[in-house]
């Protein structure tokens, strides 16, 4: 193992890891927004919205994220959408993971809805009040862990933007593999950084989950 080489290049990997972190954060925020919107559409009383929500989930979960990214980044200009690679990465991945989060959020709400809505309605709360005051607070706790699984997948998924040349961890590893012919060393460097990011996020989610349970 070429430790010298690893010591020489690791600053570049650190910089790249920071890009991966930023990508992950923006993507997670956009994904959660899309998930919340998607879930409310899927649970809407309006059939049109329900259909649109279902179509969103079906299409974005039914096709590869990489293709979605390519359509946005390479095909976007044809329909008047000009984005730089980082922006395309965040939007492409965010909308994609949002489809998965839609199902996570919807599942948690349904799980609580069953008994609780009736109880709230018999007290005289309106449908919306029941949702806001009774169901959502409980569902929010329930969805922390499965959303954590989505976020874990999302962090690994940010590697896809290497294919549109965003200089994040995987792209950097790929470039250094090409120039140094040291695939194992480069894999190890980037792999360790990925695991630190994922482990840290995992701990944060566990902490949130524990806190939510105590309250």
């Amino acid at each position: 193992m070429d430790i010298d080489l690893m010591m020489r290049v690791y600053p570049f990997f650190l910089k790249a890891a920071w890009v991966t972190v930023q990508l992950s954060i923006y993507t997670a925020i956009l994904g959660l927004a899309c998930g919340a919107l998607g879930a409310s559409m899927r649970l809407s009383r309006l059939a049109v919205l329900r259909f649109l929500g279902a179509a969103y989930v079906s299409v974005f979960r039914g096709t590869p994220a990489l293709i979605q990214l390519f359509i946005l980044y390479f095909g976007g200009p044809q329909i008047g959408i000009q984005l730089n690679a980082f922006e395309a990465g965040v939007i492409g991945l965010g909308v994609n993971i949002g489809a998965y989060m839609t199902e996570t959020i919807r599942g948690s709400i349904i799980a609580i809805d069953k008994g609780q809505r009736e109880a709230a309605r018999t007290l005289g709360l309106s449908g919306w009040q029941a949702m806001r005051k009774v169901i959502l607070p409980q569902a929010a706790r329930l969805m922390i862990r499965p959303l954590g699984v989505n976020i874990n997948a999302l962090i690994k998924g940010t590697a896809l933007v290497a294919a549109i040349s965003v200089v994040e961890l995987t792209y950097t590893a790929q470039r250094y593999i090409g120039s140094t012919y040291k695939p194992f060393e480069m894999f190890l460097l980037s792999g360790v950084l990925y695991m630190i990011i994922i482990y840290g996020t995992g701990q944060a989610i566990k902490w949130l989950d524990r806190r939510a349970r105590i309250v």
Binding site: K156, G157, T158, A159, L160, A162, A163, L169, T170, A173, Q174, I177, Y181, K182, P183, F184, F187, S190, G191, Y194, M195, I198, Y199
Partner: peptide, 18 residues
């Protein structure tokens, strides 16, 4: 489990050549 598939593909493809 902790690293992206794409990275693993690079490792396997180039690593085997190596």
């Amino acid at each position: 489990m902790g690293t992206p598939l794409l990275l693993q593909l690079f490792l396997i493809y180039f690593g085997l050549v190596q």
